[in-house]
Design a protein around this nucleic acid. Structure first.
Lengths: 392, 392
DNA sequence: CTGAAAGCGCTTACAG
DNA sequence: CTGAAAGCGCTTACAG
């Protein structure tokens, strides 16, 4: 606690010493200790306001506002004096007051619509959030975070946030087939960045469909292409893709890309099965695939946890990875490096992804027009879980 | 978009139909379409305010406020009419305006001070957050979320949030030795719940040291006791504890509990080494321990990722888990169930933990006095990674 | 360059 | 039971 913030009997002297300069001291009214300081009872600090600054600096409140917001209309001397007093008091503009004055809430929203049980699993999200934060915190924007069970609830949250004036914009994840969110956000006029591309890929020359909604795309096709090429190069011809949620746009894209890639490389049997991303369904899908009539020699998993679970199932069935089964994880993480053998994985750099999304949203909030930006294609990190198949 | 929110030419009729009743219709001024509706250009929706409700319901703004906040001073008929109009318009109180009126920001803060790299790893946090959300969302409280690099930055965030009037209270995680946060939060008068106990355990009859800071305790001693008992029962006498960050209060508690438990059970050689929770340091600690002169027959890891990494190292060294080495993870997760063999782990129920913390904070915000509450002792889930040692 | 005033959307004593 | 008014802490035209 600085003395100046909770003025006690000696505070005035301290202030004077710090400010040092007769001009300033003359403007400064004597600081009176609050009643509690005399009685000795503990009081929580009172947050300083512009009025306090104005009084101390001997200028009007509007002068303070202009000075602190770098607007013309105050002399340099006044500006620097005001700034010094503000710093000294530890003043920060009340976001509530700024929001009410039409300056926006200085807050960005993020909703995760995944069942709580599968959340702990997704290291992707926490890394995404941490990337988002890097950018937001520089600009002193807050992140309002919410976990919900499903899409409708997510829409309800957006409506509420909008009505409550809580956020200036949102970052939307997990684009879906027939996604209702872009239209809703557009109708609310809530700027948004969709992480993971549009439902339908747009031609570069087309205008963005919504004027306040940008997109950060990932090239799922190229990424899947790299995986398929790697596996085909090793000689795999029977591949199973244990995909994620059926409703997600990127699931559809990955499934389609696998099919296309396999066809062009002459792979005989590829198929995708969708799951809920959980270890349980990942394990189950693996069991079914390996117990079937024509078991795959390689399995691609849409996340790291399913890949680890799947490798575990294979081991449990007496198979060796990668001798009997190659495993690829779509999502690199500590997990992939921690297991034995270490898993070949697609490295997406979720942090950079979050950073990019936040930057784009900050741009939108600053009035830049909406657009689609591409994220670098993820890189396939080849480790010990992929090798040529024993039996063709 | 409901017709009533973006009134077009036909909106008035719709409204009248929904409201149906001459009294109400008489109070309702005709809704004029905004200019944009005539020109056909898309306009973002304007959020409805109390003024809109007052006009439509034919009462004063203060009557609307009283009606909506369930305060006496309005008749039941007025109240229900006001409520209906508010619902119809999709009205929500502006949090900014409420905050400025002294009602609080309706927001709770959570700061995570961990390096971004190790964040994706900690499934604990995302589950904690999801538990916190369950409670907050019921009360329509927002969660302001922040990731920072270290303790000082965390304190700076609290100061800023307080000065900006952004949060009504915070949930504090990772209590540390010599933790500066409680004193800071106390001086700011910011209600807080510390998750994970106090730095120093308080006797039940002692008053809580800070009037607005509650604590949700976990019984690390009992948990470690259960692990030690399990291992001792299997016949292990040389145990290594790969702990987490040295500065954290619970690390200290676990280290001490291990020592105490081992002594009482006559274990010959136990020791703890601290790490940063990362897979890398977990693996390294394992390598060092196993390569040493008197290698342990069992290792306790302070999180799931290190446990998986450690098991991988053992495998890589030609050891079999659990035949040559027993492994226990302090933190159950998908990981522990996904690896092969599945890991014996301590199940903490992070979601319940988050729920409990949020409930306690909501209580504090409601004026309930601060207190320490205990969280049920975590349960040891015995799986395939622990067994009697081959060599004593 | 500076100050007095209105307004943002609420809440809350205070009169009627 | 109801309404007019002030205030929360800012921003921003608008006069001087």
């Amino acid at each position: 606690m600085r003395a100046s913030r909770r003025p006690g009997p000696g505070a005035h002297d301290v202030t004077r010493t710090i400010l040092r300069g007769p001009t300033i001291a003359a403007h400064e009214p004597p600081v009176e200790p609050p009643p509690a300081a005399r009685t000795g009872r503990r009081v929580p600090a009172r947050r300083p306001t512009m009025k306090d600054i104005a009084r101390r600096a001997g200028v009007s409140e509007s002068a303070v506002s202009f000075a602190l917001n770098d607007r013309p209309g105050v002399s340099e001397t006044t500006r620097s004096r005001v700034r010094r007093v503000a710093d000294q008091l530890g003043w920060r503009a009340s976001t509530a007051a700024r929001a009410l004055s039409g300056e926006g809430a200085a807050t960005v929203g993020l909703v995760l619509a995944r069942p709580a049980s599968s959340l702990g699993i997704e290291s992707f999200f926490l890394q995404l959030v941490s990337g988002i934060q890097e950018v937001l915190s520089e600009r002193h924007l807050g992140l309002l975070f919410r976990v919900v069970a499903g899409a409708e609830e997510e829409c309800a949250v957006y409506r509420r946030w909008w009505a409550e004036q809580r956020v200036d914009g949102v970052i939307v994840v997990d684009p879906r087939i027939g996604d209702p969110r872009p239209a809703l956000l557009d109708s609310l006029g809530l700027p948004a960045v969709v992480v993971g591309g549009r439902e339908v890929d747009r031609e570069p020359q087309e205008p963005v469909p919504y004027p306040v909604i940008s997109t950060v795309r990932v090239d799922d096709a190229a990424a899947m292409g790299a995986i398929v090429e790697h596996l085909a190069g090793l000689g795999h011809r029977r591949v199973v893709h244990v995909a994620g949620l059926a409703g997600l746009a990127h699931t559809t894209r990955r499934v389609a890309s696998l099919r296309a890639g396999a066809a062009s490389l002459g792979m005989s049997a590829v198929r995708s099965v969708t799951t809920d991303y959980s270890e349980g369904q990942g394990a189950e899908a693996t069991r079914l695939a390996l117990a079937g009539p024509e078991p795959p020699t390689a399995i691609i998993y849409d996340n790291d946890v399913m890949a680890v679970a799947g490798a575990g199932v294979a081991l449990g069935m007496g198979l060796s990875v990668p001798r009997d089964l190659s495993v690829v994880a779509w999502e690199d993480s500590a997990l992939c490096r921690a297991t034995h053998p270490r898993l070949t994985a697609l490295d997406r750099d979720a942090t950079a992804f979050g950073r990019r999304a936040a930057e784009e949203l900050v741009g939108l909030l600053g009035g830049r027009p909406a657009r689609d930006v591409a994220q670098p294609t993820p890189e396939l990190v080849v480790r010990d879980s992929t090798a040529p198949p024993l039996r063709g």
